[in-house]
Deep mutational scan, measured.
Amino acid sequence: QIFVKTLMGKTITLEVELSDTIDNVKAKIQDKEGIPPDQQRLIFAGKQLEDGRTLSDYNIQKESTLHLVL
């Protein structure tokens, strides 16, 4: 699992595989929060994550926290 922190300070827990693409992750956030993926920007280690890449491409591990910017 990974964590996604919103600017409102809310933390969302997502069940993911490290082979999941950023697209997949955004879809899971949409399922939980109702935010359309095209409005989501995910940040990790100061970098904006690109849709076609996977979590492992960015060296994101289990229990990592991503930041969601709208």
Results as ranks from 00 to 15, higher is better:
residue 24 N to I: 08
residue 70 L to H: 15
residue 15 E to D: 10
residue 30 Q to R: 04
residue 49 L to G: 01
residue 34 G to K: 12
residue 21 T to N: 08
residue 60 I to W: 05
residue 57 D to G: 13
residue 33 E to C: 01
residue 47 K to E: 15
residue 69 V to I: 03
residue 54 T to S: 11
residue 39 Q to F: 02
residue 8 M to T: 15
residue 22 I to P: 08
residue 56 S to Q: 06
residue 65 T to K: 10
residue 26 K to M: 13
residue 49 L to R: 01
residue 2 I to M: 08
residue 67 H to N: 15
residue 21 T to W: 04
residue 22 I to K: 00
residue 17 E to T: 05
residue 8 M to W: 12
residue 22 I to L: 07
residue 60 I to A: 05
residue 42 L to I: 07
residue 37 P to C: 10
residue 5 K to R: 07
residue 39 Q to D: 07
residue 35 I to H: 07
residue 34 G to V: 08
residue 29 I to M: 10
residue 38 D to W: 02
residue 2 I to L: 06
residue 47 K to Q: 14
residue 32 K to L: 12
residue 58 Y to S: 13
residue 34 G to Y: 03
residue 58 Y to Q: 15
residue 6 T to V: 07
residue 40 Q to S: 09
residue 52 G to W: 01
residue 62 K to Q: 01
residue 70 L to W: 14
residue 45 A to M: 13
residue 40 Q to R: 02
residue 42 L to A: 00
residue 62 K to R: 08
residue 32 K to D: 14
residue 67 H to A: 11
residue 54 T to V: 06
residue 50 E to C: 12
residue 37 P to Q: 12
residue 49 L to I: 13
residue 60 I to G: 01
residue 11 T to M: 14
residue 54 T to L: 09
residue 28 K to A: 13
residue 65 T to M: 12
residue 41 R to D: 15
residue 58 Y to P: 01
residue 66 L to M: 12
residue 46 G to P: 02
residue 42 L to Y: 09
residue 21 T to E: 04
residue 48 Q to I: 03
residue 7 L to H: 15
residue 58 Y to H: 11
residue 14 L to M: 12
residue 2 I to K: 00
residue 28 K to V: 09
residue 18 L to H: 07
residue 23 D to Y: 07
residue 60 I to Y: 04
residue 11 T to L: 14
residue 19 S to I: 08
residue 43 I to K: 15
residue 18 L to N: 02
residue 52 G to L: 07
residue 52 G to N: 07
residue 9 G to S: 08
residue 50 E to A: 07
residue 33 E to I: 02
residue 26 K to H: 08
residue 25 V to Q: 01
residue 37 P to A: 14
residue 59 N to T: 13
residue 12 I to Y: 12
residue 14 L to P: 00
residue 54 T to A: 13
residue 37 P to Y: 10
residue 52 G to C: 06
residue 23 D to N: 10
residue 11 T to P: 11
residue 34 G to F: 04
residue 21 T to P: 04
residue 23 D to W: 07
residue 28 K to Y: 06
residue 31 D to H: 08
residue 4 V to C: 08
residue 36 P to V: 05
residue 7 L to M: 09
residue 36 P to T: 07
residue 36 P to D: 11
residue 29 I to S: 01
residue 50 E to V: 11
residue 8 M to S: 14
residue 25 V to W: 01
residue 7 L to S: 15
residue 17 E to W: 05
residue 40 Q to N: 05
residue 1 Q to W: 02
residue 22 I to V: 04
residue 5 K to E: 14
residue 9 G to P: 13
residue 53 R to H: 06
residue 15 E to Y: 03
residue 31 D to S: 05
residue 52 G to H: 12
residue 65 T to N: 13
residue 34 G to S: 04
residue 53 R to M: 02
residue 58 Y to R: 02
residue 65 T to C: 12
residue 3 F to T: 08
residue 30 Q to G: 11
residue 16 V to P: 07
